[in-house]
Amino acid sequence: MASSLRVLVHGGGIGGLSLAIALARRGHTVEVAELRAELDALGVGIVQPSNALHVMRELGVLEQCLEAGFEWEVLTVCDPAGNTLAGIPQPRMGGVPANNGIPRPALAGVLGRAAAEAGARIRFGTTIAELADDGSGVDAVLSDGSKGRWDLVAGFDGIGSPLRRRLYGERFRPEYTGFANWRVTVPRQPEVRGVVMSTGNPAAKALLTPITGELMYLGAVSAEAEGFRPDPERAHEQLAERLAGFGGPVAEALAQVTDPRAVVYSRISQVTVDAPWHVGRVVLAGDAAHASTPHLAQGAAMAVEDALVLAQSLDAVDGAPAALAAWEERRRPRAMWVQNMSRAVLKQETGTPTTPEEDELLKVGVPGAAHVLVQPY
């Protein structure tokens, strides 16, 4: 768009900060309302597959991400004893690396600094209290009492999105899959030079993911009751119980986990907003619109793609509502493919019956999915 827009981004996570960078560098006025007091980034580490790194290059922060993380090219598949079954080279997109593992706090720092340098303002401890879209603009009152009028409000506020509830009530609530993630940071073993995935144990799937030269995280996916939460005093022991059948590098990593406070537990849920992702001048993106299970490591990648494509759509299409429609038409098929494929892989790994549509997706396989996702977004 030729004119500068005023944009309020609700949520200062990976997707929200990426949008702030993309828009501010295009000359738009951007404020980010972030409920947390600082960009402390909950969690352990994250994989940036090649399509996410392609976005980072477009945002001008690729080198900072690579310096803070650990590049890798080959996915290693092992049996529960730790014997290597396959080494699968990962594809590249547009000349960037195949993958980068990075600590979440480091990524938050890279994106937060870039957003500020581009001219975006991040308002911490703040959320939207009131919102009114009159067709020509959006009037918002923030929780700190400040008021403003915006051309566009973008909700990158996560799987529990307050903005989604404001638009749709409880219609699109997170759906618990019956499985959960356990993650804990440990020293990187020298032989772990890319993701090592151990499968074949009915109790859990285990992964080792390098995130710096010195660190990696041990991850596990296990079936858990919806109301289960780890015992704060025994979380490391409970993780060990679920990984008792694993040997090799997984067992070596597990032996280093002695502090229950270091274990990060999160239920695996998904959200499908089966309605327009934009209502007037208010748009939902990332996990707020299409949260997936982590089985393709594409959740954050879809969010940053959403952000960059939204900025491009605002450049290319006159009028914010029309630009949002064009953005959604471009993004929905790809994001839904990732969600459906991720859920199909979860079912396959856990022996859950699949639908005929999921069976067709599974013919592509996880290695094939990586090649699909390095195609233009």
Rank of each mutant, 00 (worst) to 15 (best):
A326R: 07
R92S: 14
T126M: 09
S50M: 07
D79I: 02
P190R: 08
E360M: 06
G280M: 07
L208S: 15
P294Q: 10
R165W: 07
V186W: 14
F70A: 11
P97H: 06
G109D: 05
P276T: 05
G135Y: 13
A326H: 10
L373I: 04
L163W: 00
N100A: 15
A41T: 01
L310A: 08
D318L: 13
E34N: 11
E117N: 14
D134C: 15
P105Q: 08
K147C: 10
E130Q: 15
E130C: 13
G16C: 06
G365H: 03
V282G: 05
E73S: 15
M216C: 14
P91L: 04
H278Q: 13
V138K: 05
A316H: 13
R123S: 07
L62A: 12
A223H: 11
V96G: 03
A118L: 09
P249Q: 08
F172M: 14
G160A: 10
A115R: 04
F172C: 13
F156P: 00
G351K: 14
W327Y: 08
G43S: 15
A180M: 10
V9I: 12
N100F: 01
T127E: 13
D274T: 09
F70W: 10
S292H: 02
V30G: 08
Y377E: 03
A370I: 00
R188T: 02
D151P: 03
A120G: 06
P49H: 12
V61C: 12
G109E: 05
A33L: 05
D157M: 05
I14K: 06
G227D: 12
D318T: 12
K205L: 08
A320I: 13
G299F: 01
T258F: 11
Y265P: 01
A275R: 13
V9S: 11
G351Q: 07
T354Y: 09
E358T: 06
P353M: 04
V186Y: 13
A297I: 01
V257N: 10
A289M: 05
A303W: 04
G200Y: 02
E357W: 03
A251P: 00
V250I: 15
